[in-house]
Design a protein around this nucleic acid. Structure first.
Lengths: 226, 226
DNA sequence: AGGGTCCTTGACGGGTCCTTGACGGGTGAC
DNA sequence: GTCACCCGTCAAGGACCCGTCAAGGACCCT
């Protein structure tokens, strides 16, 4: 579930109020107080949506807008005190997804953010296929093919493999596996991991006794290697 | 390239004013004065964007919104006299792309339409007919034919099938099915799924005992396969 | 009120999957 | 060399899930 929002506003009071409300609604919040740090933050944190106040100290808000649109299609909701005028038109034509005038109702802003994120997800479906050797892991369809033929996985096997695939090349600790696949109550019962790692190797590896993709890190966890 | 806009408004004066202004800006305009003709017009003319007034004579504007969102992702800009209240939130959560309160500046509406169309272009084309083997699922008219003949579906059966059709080839989880067809309160009662999957197979599959389209993923959910 | 449709709920057989235990091999510590 | 620990393997029982049939009852239309 992706829901990180970048709030760009130079008024500390408003920025803080926004952050508190957003966090209360389950958002992860990153804030920036000027244009330069906004562009930096967007580049480094990859938010799912941006709330951008046009009145910034260091550069015109429209410049920030143009700067963002230069490289990303992340939804941008513009916030402005200017009720009338060409600002709205200009902002929307520059690529803003929505325009809210201050003062605004918090629940309206929330709804507009949800709408913006929803559109953003439709436009660019996240990570879909993970390829590992002759394996293709289709995260959207929850299916695996090996050299083109379907491999039948049980729900637990899939859950296990999915977590590894989403962390391709990175070590996934035993604790993380147990927590996400079996639930927090089963952390410590690492026998599960051995059984299911073996089952997956039997289904996915050319030589299950000498795995090349599903690698064990003794005492630590497992890694899916490309 | 002339863009087509569907204007849904029951006030002739406003509708005419909108049409004139839009045509002056190079739009091709189709108008509808009530909800039913709006849905028909959307299905037959495939507009690039819809301007929808919430105050309609025959049905609630939100119903029209939901009716459109059932089968198309065409951008919808909602027009309303109601300045405040939950209407905005409701409309946006139902899938509206933007919300403009009357009175509004014509150039602002133009800008919002441009923005909406621009986003709509990035999204995938609207899904109207889904073809699966000898089945044709008409999402706009909520009908199914099998080898050309109509298949009678109950409302719940349709709702079940529609969700699968909109995610053709993708696994729809049990939770998602239960939430969207029976409501969030019934998540967990997967017995429903078995009953309705069997009913649909009896109506849609050549050999209900060996389904080729409505596929079960044990423990996960169902997929509609082409 | 009556008939019909549709949703809900129960029971049951068959099959799959999860859990659990036991065992052997490899490795490092002492 | 022995011990402890962790990993991988195999097998079996029981729990869970799926598909199916059918009946009760709510709801709607006439």
């Amino acid at each position: 579930m992706s829901r990180k929002v970048l709030v760009v506003d130079d008024e500390p009071a408003l920025a803080r109020a926004l952050a508190i409300n957003l966090r209360a609604h389950g958002w992860e919040v990153v804030t920036a107080a000027d244009g330069r740090s906004a562009l930096d933050a967007a580049a480094t944190t990859h938010p799912d949506v941006v709330v951008l106040d046009l009145g910034l100290p260091d550069m015109d808000g429209t410049e920030v807008l143009a700067g963002l649109r230069g490289w990303t299609k992340v939804p941008i909701v513009v916030l402005s005190a200017r009720q009338h005028g060409e600002d709205k038109v200009e902002a929307l034509d520059l690529g803003a997804d929505d325009y809210v005038t201050k003062p605004f109702a918090m629940n309206e802003l929330m709804a507009r953010l949800r709408a913006a994120v929803r559109r953003g997800e439709e436009a660019e479906p996240a990570l879909v296929d993970v390829e590992v050797g002759s394996l293709v892991i289709d995260l959207a369809r929850k299916r695996v093919t090996r050299a083109g033929v379907d491999v039948r996985l049980t729900p637990t096997e899939w859950s296990f493999l999915e977590l590894l695939a989403r962390n391709l090349g990175r070590l996934v600790t035993r604790e993380q596996l147990l927590r996400e696949v079996w639930g927090p109550a089963h952390v410590g019962e690492s026998h599960y991991l051995r059984v299911y790692a073996a089952q997956l190797r039997r289904k996915l590896e050319d030589d299950p006794a000498h795995p090349r993709h599903l690698i064990t890190s003794p005492g630590l966890g497992y890694t899916l290697e490309a």
